[in-house]
């Protein structure tokens, strides 16, 4: 095998893994707390992408892309908050129904974007310092991909800090461990749910900015990343950020390295087979805070 190709794909794998991670962190956090999956999470990516595009219309150039990150974060977090408080909260005891209802939201958001911005998609022009590439050991690495990895590491670091060192982090960990007991000690679990949901949606919005750097933002841009992100949640293990990160890294690398040998569509099928085989070995996920077996 060609060593350059291998290194290239290895690096690609890390940047794909970073996107999977940013897309799945919010899903995994909320799933750990509330046992629900928001099928409209992919549309938070889309929203982030469009917000980045609009920010760059107002503030063109290098400052724009930096400004786009908080804008996309806040915009997607607000949309997430709206979905959580109007819909998901009502369905909290019915995880499968939540899947269906939020899928409805996803359809509406996609069609809304199609009507507002057109089906073709909009192009975000990356600033010069992001559109170049760096040659390293014979491998050409696009700067945008390095930027994405850096952002993912930064987000993960901040999230870890928040969860381990702040008061809200303490509350989140408490609810994650035992919801009933946490509520009994006087923690407002609904507020913890809401905060974490907004945070997760915001991170997805931020991921949307990264997607906008890689290609055009279309109404269904979120769909191509969200299904791998769901697989990350399946593989990661309940309520563990470390597990989610490991799963994102494994699946990102797997799909990039598989593409050395087979085309994208076969790689996708192999990814699914890999996840199904993985749960034969570790049905509880990469890292399990709690077991799934008695989780009814």
């Amino acid at each position: 095998m060609d060593a350059t190709l291998f290194l290239n794909q290895l690096f690609n794998g890390f940047s794909v893994a970073s996107l999977y991670l940013l897309a799945s962190l919010g899903l995994a956090l909320s799933f750990g707390l509330m046992r629900v999956i928001n099928m409209a999470h992919g549309e938070m990516l889309m929203l982030g992408g469009y917000l980045a595009w609009m920010t760059l219309l107002v503030v063109p150039g290098a400052a724009g892309i930096i400004l786009a990150i908080p804008v996309a974060f806040v915009g997607a977090a607000a949309m997430g908050g709206l979905i959580q408080s109007t819909l998901i909260r009502r369905l909290s005891a019915r995880p499968l129904d939540t899947l269906l209802a939020t899928w409805g939201v996803s359809l509406i958001l996609q069609q809304g974007a199609r009507d507002l911005f057109g089906a073709v998609g909009v192009e975000v022009r990356a600033p010069d310092w992001l559109s170049g590439s760096i040659a390293l050991a014979g491998v050409t690495i696009p700067s945008a991909r390095i930027f994405i990895i850096a952002v993912a590491v930064l987000v993960l670091g901040s999230l870890a800090l928040l969860l381990l060192r702040s008061r809200i982090g303490l509350l989140v960990r408490a609810v994650n461990q035992d919801r009933m007991m946490a509520a009994a000690t006087g923690i407002d679990v609904k507020r913890v749910d809401f905060t974490i949901f907004c945070l997760g949606a915001g991170i997805a919005g931020l991921a949307g900015v990264m997607l906008a750097l890689l290609g055009p933002v279309t109404p269904n841009v979120g769909q191509s990343y969200i299904i791998p992100a769901f697989l990350v949640v399946v593989m990661g293990g309940l309520g563990s950020i470390v597990g989610t990160t490991a799963a994102a890294a494994i699946l990102g690398l797997f799909s990039a390295l598989a593409q050395i040998f087979v085309d994208v569509s076969v790689a996708q099928m192999l990814l699914l087979v890999f996840v199904v085989l993985f749960i034969q070995v570790r049905p509880q996920g990469v890292i399990a805070v709690r077991t799934r077996a008695l989780d009814v």
């Binding site: 899947l99 199904v276 749960i279 034969q280 799934r292």
Partner: peptide
């Protein structure tokens, strides 16, 4: 392997996509 519920729904969706 006693994986079901939401996990199963997500895996079947990945199957449809693949």
């Amino acid at each position: 392997r006693r994986v079901g519920g939401t996990y199963f729904a997500l895996i079947t969706q990945a199957l449809a996509l693949a």
